[in-house]
Design a protein around this nucleic acid. Structure first.
Length: 504
RNA sequence: GGGUCGUUAGCUCAGCCGGUAGAGCACCGGGCUUUUAACCCGUUGGUCCUGGGUUCGAUCCCCAGACGGCCCA
């Protein structure tokens, strides 16, 4: 062994493993790709797990497996390996007298925990009854040059887990479970909308005019056109152009980008599903959303991906029962003790800010929304549809027929978080133009989140958009909820992180 | 942006009142042919996040910074 390899720490471990790799290269292909697996660990357990030791011995059933070495127990001339593949773990028994002296020497000298290997042999059970592949042939398929984290505790440090997701996935079954759940969630959502005749579409991620939500956009530059382009904050305005075009039911599942802070609930890029439906109103979408959520929970439970009951602050969240419905005025009234009718008075709402000065240029709607967000939102643990949103904070939603200060809009809250936002669409081009002008006025006053005037979108509405309703639903938030993850970073494979240190 | 808590071996973590650091796993050497987080014996491994300051002396106290967690804006 070289001097480097004798030193301790990771540098020494890597040096020692590199020397092993060089020895492997010296005897032929060190990264072979001709090993063919015959069974997954799970398939072997399903097929043989219940059979007796004697029964297995008589059958002489044969297999070839492959995976990463997770545990290793060497007892002189015989050893046990636990390898892990995509389906789970299986134990292997390697004996000098079965694989040959040369192969066994290699195994002892050159193989480490973390290496990817292939094992072929017969099925057996050990004295303690564990199903095991009794090796006849063993192959090292890919050498791991870095040591894995501690075998029992795994990788616990959240920062390291997010920065090195590959190690997190190798070590933490629970992490793998979260991303399988997320995948199934999206898949089941597609099935739900496909069954109902919605067309899945892809609209631009780069917008000449940012729109569809009040949020700060990322800006980029297109060289040939020599124009600024904005990463989309929402696909909404493009999806509604498609409704004008006659695609009466559309949905899109993809990324949105918002240039704001990082919190346990916010990542600069995040995934939503938005869907639109002609000849429907917001109340139809409330019903649709409730059945969607019920369906998702049922399907994920059936697939064994939602392993625990969802709870929030020690309180079980009842996802399979009917959801509550409440107006924003009633919700704020219940929390503040002010009568709902009295809350229509801007001064009564302003008074709820207490000692703090309420922004003087905010209208009634914005103030009410702020009170709702501060006082009510976090307390909506059980699934609750809130309706009756102020028009002032809903520039793309259709005004309510019986109160022009309100719009036909709802949001769904679960576990204190906004999960969905939907409304009857504003298809009156003149009203929409006025709402855009109001937004531009806010922007001129310095509101970085206010919307631009999108004349092209107004022109599309002037071709007549059928009465419609639409909704956006946060996939990350939903994945958090259903997997019990406390942070959005736990449900994003590669969350946005501040870069760290030397890049050599 | 503000507040607060954290950062010690590759990993998981101890470290008292300020006296130059330990354990388990991993690694390395030895033993062991049905083990189970295998076990037994013996080693190796440290910029105590970084930079200043106080002190005879700082992982420990003070200041600034980096990165992260949480809360607030």
């Amino acid at each position: 062994m070289s001097e480097d390899a004798r030193q301790g720490g990771e540098a020494g471990i890597v040096a020692a493993r590199r020397e092993k790799l060089e020895r492997l290269r010296g005897r032929g292909q060190a990264y072979p790709n001709d090993w063919r697996r015959e069974h997954l660990a799970r398939e072997l357990i399903d097929a043989h797990g219940e059979r007796s030791k004697e029964e297995l011995e008589e059958s002489g059933d044969d297999t070839a497996v492959a995976g990463r070495i997770m545990l290793r127990r060497v007892m002189g001339k015989a050893s046990f390996l636990t390898i892990e593949d995509v389906s789970g773990r299986i134990q292997c028994y390697v004996r000098r007298d079965d694989v040959g002296e040369a192969a066994y020497e290699d195994f002892r000298e050159l193989w480490d925990i973390g290496d990817v290997v292939g094992i072929a042999g017969t099925m057996m059970k050990t004295g303690r009854g564990e199903l095991t592949v009794h090796a006849r042939e063993i192959r090292l398929l890919a050498k791991a040059l870095h040591p894995l984290p501690e075998k029992y505790h795994g990788l616990a440090d959240t920062e390291l887990r997010h920065r090195n997701r590959h190690i997190d996935l190798i070590m933490n079954e629970d992490s793998r479970r979260v991303f399988r759940l997320r995948s199934a969630l999206v898949r089941e959502m597609r099935v739900f909308f496909d069954e109902r005749g919605y067309l899945e579409v892809e609209t631009p991620m780069m917008h000449p005019i940012p729109g569809g939500a009040t949020a700060r956009p990322f800006v980029t530059h297109h060289n040939t056109l020599d124009i600024e382009l904005y990463l989309r904050v929402a696909p909404e305005l493009y999806l509604k152009r498609l409704v004008v075009g006659g695609f009466e039911r559309v949905y899109e599942i993809n990324r949105c980008f918002r240039n704001e802070g990082l919190t346990p609930r916010h990542n600069p890029e995040f995934t939503t599903i938005e869907f639109y439906q002609a000849y429907a109103d917001y109340a139809d979408l409330v019903e649709l959303t409730e059945s969607l959520l019920h369906r998702l929970v049922e399907r994920l439970r059936a697939q064994g991906l939602m392993t625990t009951e969802v709870e929030w602050g020690g309180e079980p969240v009842r996802l399979d029962e009917p959801f509550r419905r409440m107006t924003m005025l009633d919700a704020v009234a219940a929390e503040t003790g002010v009568e709902p009718d009295a809350l229509k008075d801007i001064e009564r709402v302003r008074a709820l800010f207490g000692n703090e000065e309420a922004p003087s240029d905010w209208g009634w709607g914005r103030l009410l929304m702020e009170v709702f967000e501060r006082r009510v939102e976090a307390k909506l643990v059980q699934p609750t549809f809130i309706t009756g949103y102020p028009s002032e904070v809903s520039p793309l939603a259709r005004r309510s027929d019986d109160d022009p200060d309100l719009v036909d809009r709802f949001e769904l809250f679960i576990a204190g978080r906004e999960v969905a936002n939907g409304f009857s669409e504003l298809n009156d081009p003149d009203d929409q133009a006025q709402r855009f002008r109001d937004q531009v006025a806010l922007k001129d006053q310095g509101d970085l989140e206010a919307m631009h005037f999108d004349a092209d979108y107004i022109r599309a509405l002037e071709y007549a958009m059928p009465p419609a309703a639409g909704e956006g639903l946060g996939i990350d938030r939903l994945a958090m909820l259903l997997s019990g993850a406390p942070s959005i970073r736990d449900v994003l494979l590669f969350p946005t992180m501040r870069p760290v240190g030397e890049a050599s």
